[in-house]
Structures are given as structure tokens and as C-alpha cells.
């Protein structure tokens, strides 16, 4: 995984509540056996007509936001299924940061495994950033994971929280499986105890 430190980019506004994983990547694109190439189908049914033509009103089709790296969205972003295809599609499109008041649990987890930083902020901060995002390509937002700060186009600073372990993994681009395998001895010891105390499990 690539290291994540800082993103300076255009933020696209999506002031919709409960953006679910079916919206982010509809099921017809889950038939792939690869992780890559899903960006073109990100938000497919909101972004294209049935015939496949771009819908000009959709935010990521507007010239200002075609290269957005940050999404500012309504409450409960990523609710629904566990499909990691959702963060794969976002990452493949180029989205590296998502800002909302809240995220669904599985989606939130999945983001960190794919170099995406989800940031949960109070409503007032999200409202402010949504306004900034509405200003299009002229208003870039800077997200610094090291200092845990978001710098808006007007020089305003918003601090954000992130779990220390997840921050460390994102900054270093660490592979979870590799980290856990270093604890192999503890896992084996646990399994040996389990075989005695709960052999049916």
C-alpha cells in the first residue's frame, strides 16, 4: 500500500445523506475478480444514463471536480454492504479523503486498508467544508495526516481525530497481514489453549 501523508486537492461536495455502497459501486461491477479498474464505474447509476452517457449535473462529471481527491458528503457515508469494491472504486478514481459526520463501520475499516482516509467531523465543520467544496476547482483543501489538520481555502484550520494504530499503518503504508504474522507465536499459543478449553470450536 502507498504511504499516505498529505493531500492537497479539490474537494467535491455530495450533500446527500446515507450514501450507500450500492450507490458507490452497483452490484453489476462486483463480478470482477480484480481490485483495479473500478474507478470508471464509481457512482455508476448516478453518473451515467442507462445508455452510458455522462449525466452532466452529477458532481464528478463537472469540469471542476473531475480530478477531485477529496469527497465531502452527508451523514452515514458508506452504509450497506461490506463490499471493498466501494473503496477500491473510490481509490481507483483518485479519491484519497472522505469527510462526513459519520461513516458505516465496515466501510470505515475498508478505507484504511486501501490508503483512503475517512474523517468524521462535527456537523458545523462538515457544513463549512461543504461550502468550500461548492466553490469548485478554485478552492483546494489540504488534509495533513501527520498533524491531523484540514486547511480550508480561506486559511481556516480544522483538527480531526484518527485512531493511532490506523494512522501509523496509513503513514507507513503497512500491510496488516504482515504485521499480524509477527504475532504468530501468540496465535499458536491461543489455538493450543482453545483445543483444550473449547475443542468443538
Amino acid at each position: 500500500m502507498d504511504k499516505f501523508q498529505k493531500v492537497d486537492g479539490v474537494a467535491a461536495p455530495m450533500p446527500i445523506l446515507n450514501i450507500d455502497t450500492d450507490m458507490i459501486i452497483p452490484k453489476q461491477f462486483l463480478k470482477t475478480i480484480k481490485r483495479t479498474g473500478l474507478g470508471v464505474n464509481l457512482f455508476d447509476e448516478m453518473r451515467y444514463t442507462k445508455e452510458g452517457a455522462e449525466i452532466p449535473e452529477f458532481v464528478l462529471n463537472k469540469p471542476a471536480y473531475r480530478n477531485a481527491q477529496i469527497l465531502v458528503a452527508g451523514d452515514n457515508f458508506g452504509c450497506g454492504s461490506s463490499r471493498e469494491h466501494a473503496p477500491w472504486a473510490l481509490a481507483d478514481f483518485g479519491i484519497q479523503v472522505i469527510i462526513s459526520t459519520s461513516f458505516a463501520d465496515i466501510f470505515y475499516n475498508n478505507c484504511f486498508k486501501n490508503g483512503i482516509l475517512p474523517i468524521a467531523l462535527p456537523q458545523a465543520d462538515v457544513d463549512k467544508l461543504m461550502e468550500d467544496a461548492e466553490r469548485g476547482a478554485n478552492a483546494t483543501v489540504s488534509v495533513d495526516l501527520v498533524s491531523q489538520e484540514i486547511h480550508g481555502p480561506d486559511g481556516g484550520v480544522i483538527k480531526f481525530e484518527v485512531d493511532a494504530f490506523r494512522k501509523h499503518c496509513l503513514l507507513e503504508g503497512l500491510d496488516d497481514v504482515g504485521l499480524t504474522l509477527q504475532k504468530e507465536t501468540s496465535i499458536t499459543a491461543f489455538e493450543e489453549k482453545l483445543a483444550v478449553s473449547r475443542p468443538w470450536a
Partner: peptide
């Protein structure tokens, strides 16, 4: 019992564990 993403599926296949914080 809970749902996980594909990276976590790989993690469980490989280590039979999951990295979690308690809810």
C-alpha cells in the same frame, strides 16, 4: 458475527484473526 471487507477476508484466511477495537 459480523461482516468484513476483502482485505480482512485475506487477513482471516492467512492468520485466523482480525484486528479489532471493541465496540
Amino acid at each position: 458475527a459480523h461482516g468484513i471487507g476483502t482485505s480482512e477476508v485475506e487477513h482471516v484466511l492467512s492468520t485466523q484473526t482480525l484486528i479489532q477495537t471493541k465496540a
